[in-house]
Amino acid sequence: MGMPNRKYADGEVVMGRWPGSVLYYEVQVTSYDDASHLYTVKYKDGTELALKESDIRLQS
């Protein structure tokens, strides 16, 4: 078993793309699913969504 190939840690605050949009919002990573390679993130309004790594970026 190798290390999970994840870029962002639980609790890390990053920018997540809103689905169907080009806009990124501040989100907190809450979990990562090794099987689906999706991150569960929480937006400031409390919305929780699963995002692909390509829809997440570090805060500038």
Rank of each mutant, 00 (worst) to 15 (best):
D34N: 09
E53G: 05
V14L: 06
E48T: 14
M3C: 15
L38V: 09
G16L: 10
L23H: 12
S21N: 06
N5I: 15
V14G: 02
G20E: 06
R6K: 05
L23E: 12
A50R: 15
V13W: 15
Y8V: 02
V13S: 06
V13E: 05
P4I: 12
M15I: 06
E26I: 13
P4D: 12
G46T: 04
R6T: 03
E53M: 04
S31L: 04
Y43H: 09
V13G: 03
L23D: 11
S60H: 12
S36M: 10
G16T: 08
D34G: 09
Y39L: 01
L38P: 00
S21T: 14
R57I: 11
Y32V: 01
H37F: 11
R57H: 09
Q28I: 15
S36D: 06
M3R: 15
L23Y: 12
Y25I: 11
D55I: 01
D10C: 06
V14C: 04
G11Q: 04
V14P: 01
V22Y: 13
M1H: 14
Q28C: 11
Q28S: 09
T30M: 15
M3F: 12
E53A: 06
Y43E: 02
E12I: 07
Y43V: 07
Y32T: 00
Y43Q: 07
V14F: 02
A35Y: 12
D55T: 02
M3A: 15
K42I: 12
K42D: 01
G46E: 05
R17K: 10
G46D: 05
T30S: 09
G20Q: 06
D45V: 03
H37R: 13
V27E: 00
Y8M: 01
P4W: 07
L58A: 15
L49T: 07
A35E: 13
V22R: 13
E48S: 11
S21R: 07
I56W: 01
Y43W: 12
S31F: 08
L23I: 13
E53D: 08
Y39Q: 00
G11Y: 05
V22C: 15
Y24N: 01
Y32S: 00
T47G: 04
V13A: 06
Y25K: 10
P19C: 06
G11W: 05
V41Q: 01
M3G: 15
K7D: 02
G16Q: 02
L58W: 10
Q28T: 15
Y8N: 01
M15D: 05
W18M: 09
M15T: 04
D55L: 03
P4T: 10
S54V: 10
L23S: 09
L58K: 15
T30D: 05
N5R: 04
V13R: 10
T30L: 15
A50F: 15
K42H: 06
K52R: 13
T40P: 00
P4K: 08
A35M: 13
D55C: 06
Q59S: 13
Y24L: 04
L49N: 04
R6S: 03
H37M: 15
D34W: 09
M3N: 15
Y39V: 02
M1R: 09
L58H: 14
S21G: 11
S21E: 06
L38E: 08
T47F: 07
Q59I: 14
V29C: 01
D45F: 05
M15F: 13
Y25M: 10
A50N: 13
I56S: 01
L38D: 04
S21C: 08
S21H: 06
E12L: 10
T47I: 09
R6H: 05
R17V: 04
M1K: 12
L51R: 01
K42R: 14
Y32Q: 00
R57M: 14
R57N: 06
M3V: 15
D10V: 12
S60I: 12
L23Q: 11
A35D: 11
I56E: 00
V29T: 01
K7Y: 05
S31E: 05
G20A: 05
L51I: 10
T47N: 05
R6Y: 03
G11T: 03
D34Q: 10
K44V: 09
K52L: 12
E12A: 13
A9G: 09
Y25Q: 09
G46P: 01
D45L: 02
Y24R: 02
S60Q: 12
H37L: 12
D55E: 10
G2D: 14
S36C: 08
R17T: 03
M3K: 15
Y8I: 03
A35R: 12
W18T: 06
L58S: 15
G11S: 04
T47M: 07
D55K: 02
A9H: 11
E48K: 10
A35Q: 13
G20M: 07
S36K: 11
R6D: 02
K7P: 03
M1W: 03
T30F: 09
G20H: 07
R57L: 10
S54E: 14
G16N: 01
G20R: 05
L49F: 15
S54C: 10
P19H: 06
S60R: 08
V27L: 08
K44Q: 10
Q28W: 09
L51T: 02
G46M: 03
D10Y: 05
L58P: 15
Y32I: 00
D33P: 00
M15Q: 08
M15C: 15
R57V: 10
